[in-house]
Design a protein around this nucleic acid. Structure first.
Length: 760
RNA sequence: GGGCGCGUAGCUCAGUUGGUUAGAGUGUCUCGGUGACAUCGAGAAGGUCAGAGGUUCAAAUCCUCUCGCGCCCACCA
């Protein structure tokens, strides 16, 4: 900033009599400095323009803070994120750009709700249903508020120069309006639709989750090869015998000579006292080489089988419910847990001599990200976003896509990265990104969670011509009936309810809430006031950099690109910079169960925020995981102390220097300053190219091993006061030291916020 | 099955587009000094840069293969 030279000069001249504690005490300095900055208002670009810090028409630079979940406290990953972004922001601010770093928090629906549920069960032995929705939500909001306050405090302690006046929350009123607006628009374009299909059900969380929230875990499983009955011609294999009571077909490969003769035939068998009607079908999906070359088709409890059933018009018979218990109507199975049912059926198979083989295989079992519970695929009516459906994009700022062009969301997501409008750093993650899009299926966005944005859709009995897609191929099963009922209802989707008096007119709002990533996807522009046409939106969007951990590239980064290109016709950010995961000193993931979580606040208290920041920057190129040890943080506390003491030395040796009159410099000093300016150039280039880790390391090395070890050491002789023989040299040396220190501190400022101004 | 990354000093890791004796922190050893700094200074030991082959005047860096480790994605019952 243009004020800084005067500022430092004043500090220097005022310093003489000031207390200059030794050793350096970060806790005594950092808080004071941050407070000064907060009070100055310089974190707010409007204030900066007002005070003339930079011109009204200065180039802008904007970053939105990835909003931390209000599920508790920040961890070292957040600290790394704050450090990196603060460096970027302070660097650009110093270069005179109109800089905005917009903070906020995320309601993280399912994560927050399950956290509170867990706590409730632990302390009061109650479920959320025991409390009721209203009371439960009160508890969640209270918890969220407390977490928010903790997080804000931690962000401040890190020294993050965010503009608090613009703080946002993914579940506050303006963001809710944005969510409803986005939903409505997608609904009208036919991109959001309601469909009946097999989804990922989390029996513990009692909600559906998206494909991305499924975590695969390698386990050993038993595969059973058996026949439904003694006179059934084909043996099939399964790892889940309990689902077989829901089978409606056996599928074989169309070219499989072994089974040709059976295709099209139908069998009625009694399987573990359950009557089954099995049709033999042929489908390309079946691999004749694998297993017995024949697949038992369970349309209700397998996504592949469900699709197969669709193609062959097979009945869908659900036999497992939301609590992972059997619903099939036979005394020995009804109400049993799936695991128990499996044992019963295997026993029955053995008894009937139908089990041909049993072998152990490696299997990827799907579990829910948040609860860890094994996923139960169930057929359900849910809301989805269609990523393949074409729609008209009215206004496009996207290279290669014209106004009013017909495109799909997938195309939009692919185009902006392909044409480099959004650059992904490090670029190897581009491959990951494209691979994800290629495999992308409809995004399930509805959740049976209480905490979140309620779906802006209302239903009314009667009317009913706006019904969702009819699953005509579903037979008259229990679930089929439910669907029929839903279908008879009139559907209204709107930013606002169907009428002011909707409750009394028989309308009911959809009780489901939205996937938390739906609202996160809007973050770059919902925070700037969208759907309102605000100045902020005009000035700061698209943002310049989105900086986050690589593990949310799909959840968040891709969804932001989706939402922004669709709703605004423009990219959400120009660069997507990914940092790695912060692991413990042995390279393990930090987790509660391992007890190796390092609390950033504790490190800040012990070593200072600047030391903590430096330890997270140096040796951490984009995208690489870093192992962090306390030793490393301690090392940078020593560095802070070094800066402090070097500054003390310089200041106490230039007391008789008139800093307003530049003396004639000797060659040696000219050269030193030239070299330092070259370093400044070099570091600027590093920062422009996101090589923060290199810039920080170079600064560290220069300050300690060149400036302190060489330049200051060599200056000691030259500074001797009674060295009257060469006053010119002494004066030159003084000036050089003062100048070099100032430049060093300026260069250090983005990294170590405590060194913006000299301590008083 | 597909993709990505890693293997550099005892330990944890840097090394930007290939270019002088390969660096940092930490640890070890010797010495110094308490008027910037013991959260210190000077110096030392310690690396066939996983292995093999290739490209090049020149390779830790580029290419191929091998070994070891980690991660992500995928509807093989």
């Amino acid at each position: 900033m243009n004020t800084n030279n005067t500022h430092i000069n004043n500090q220097i001249s005022n310093k003489i009599n000031a207390k200059f504690l030794k050793p350096y005490e970060p806790s005594a300095t950092e808080g004071v400095i941050y407070k000064k900055w907060l009070d100055s208002g310089f974190f707010n670009p409007d204030v900066c323009v007002e005070k003339g810090v930079y011109a009204k028409d200065a180039e802008k630079f904007s970053i939105v803070l990835p909003p931390p979940n209000v599920t508790g406290t920040l961890h070292l990953g957040h600290a790394a994120m704050l450090a990196i972004e603060d460096i970027m922001v302070r660097f650009e601010r110093m270069r005179g750009k109109k800089t905005l770093w917009l903070p906020g928090t995320d309601h993280a629906s399912i994560a927050t709700q399950s956290k509170v549920e867990k706590e409730l069960m632990k302390t009061e032995k109650k479920s959320r249903h025991d409390l009721g929705q209203k009371e439960f939500l009160k508890r969640v909001e209270k918890f969220a508020q407390e977490s928010h306050d903790t997080i804000v405090h931690q962000v401040e302690r890190m020294g993050a120069s965010v503009d608090w006046s613009r703080e946002a929350f993914t579940l506050d009123a303006p963001r809710n309006k944005a969510v409803r607006t986005a939903f409505k628009r997608m609904y009208d374009d036919g991109l959001i639709y309601r469909d009946y299909r097999v989804i990922n059900w989390d029996p513990k969380g009692q909600t559906v989750i998206s494909d991305d929230e499924v975590v695969y875990q390698e386990t050993k499983a038993l595969v059973y090869i058996f026949k439904y009955s003694a006179d059934f011609p084909i043996a099939i294999a399964t790892t889940r015998p309990e689902t077989k009571v829901g089978d409606t077909a056996v599928a074989v490969s169309p070219n499989d000579t072994r089974y040709q003769k059976y295709i099209g035939k139908e069998y009625v068998v009694e399987f573990c006292d359950v009557p089954l009607h099995i049709k033999i079908i042929s489908d390309d999906e079946v691999d004749p080489e694998y297993g017995t070359g024949a697949v038992g088709v369970t349309p209700a409890h397998s996504m592949i089988d469900f699709e197969m059933a669709k193609r062959h018009n097979l009945p869908v018979i659900p036999v497992i419910n939301e609590y992972a218990r059997m619903t099939v109507d036979t005394p020995q199975l009804t109400g049993k847990k799936t695991k128990e049912a499996r044992e019963i059926i295997v026993e029955w198979l053995k008894k009937e001599n139908l089990l041909e083989k049993e072998e152990e295989v490696d299997q990827n079992i799907s579990t829910a990200e948040r609860t860890g519970c094994v996923i139960e695929p169930l057929p359900k009516l849910q809301w989805f976003i269609d990523v393949d459906k074409k729609f008209i994009l009215p206004k496009s700022h996207i290279t290669g896509i014209k106004d009013n062009e017909s495109v799909s969301l997938k195309q939009l997501m692919q185009t902006v990265v392909q044409n480099n409008q959004v650059k992904i750093l490090p670029d190897r993650f581009e491959k990951t990104y494209f691979q994800w899009i290629d495999n992308l299926r409809p995004w399930c966005i509805s959740r049976q969670i209480w905490y979140g944005h309620q779906i802006p859709v209302w239903y009314k009995n009667g009317g009913g011509n706006k019904s969702p897609k009819s699953p005509t191929w579903v037979l008259d099963t229990q679930v089929g009936n439910n669907i029929q009922k839903e279908e008879e209802k009139e559907v209204f989707c709107g930013v606002e309810p169907p009428s002011a008096n909707w409750q009394n007119e028989g309308w009911e709002q959809d009780p489901d809430t939205l996937d938390t990533w739906f609202s996160s996807g809007l973050w770059t522009f919902s925070t700037l006031g969208w759907p309102e046409k605000t100045d902020d939106l005009k000035t700061y969007h698209p943002t310049d950099i989105l900086e986050t951990a690589y593990d949310i590239i799909f959840f968040w980064v891709a969804r932001m690109i989706l939402m922004s290109t669709y709703l605004l016709g423009e990219i959400p950010f120009k660069y997507s910079y990914f940092h790695g995961l912060v692991r413990d000193s042995k390279g393990r993931k930090m987790s509660k169960s391992l007890g190796n979580i390092v609390d950033p606040l504790e490190m800040i208290n012990k070593y200072g925020a600047d030391a903590t920041r430096m330890s997270l920057i140096i040796g951490a190129p984009p995208g690489n995981d870093t192992n962090l040890s306390e030793d490393k943080i301690r090392a940078y506390k020593k560095f802070a102390n070094k800066i402090w003491n070097a500054s003390r030395f310089v200041l106490s040796n230039i007391q008789d220097l008139n800093i307003n009159i530049k003396p004639e410099l000797v060659e040696k000093d000219k050269k030193i300053l030239q070299e330092l300016n070259a370093l400044a150039q070099d570091i600027t280039i590093d920062l422009e190219n996101f090589r923060l880790y290199l810039a920080a390391e170079k600064l560290y090395h220069y300050f300690w091993h060149i400036f302190a070890d060489k330049i200051i050491e060599e200056s000691k002789e030259r500074l001797v006061e009674n060295n009257t023989t060469n006053q010119t040299d002494r004066l030159s040396c003084q000036w050089m030291l003062c100048e070099a220190l100032k430049i060093n501190l300026k260069l250090l400022h983005p990294f170590m916020h405590g060194w913006r101004v000299l301590p008083t």
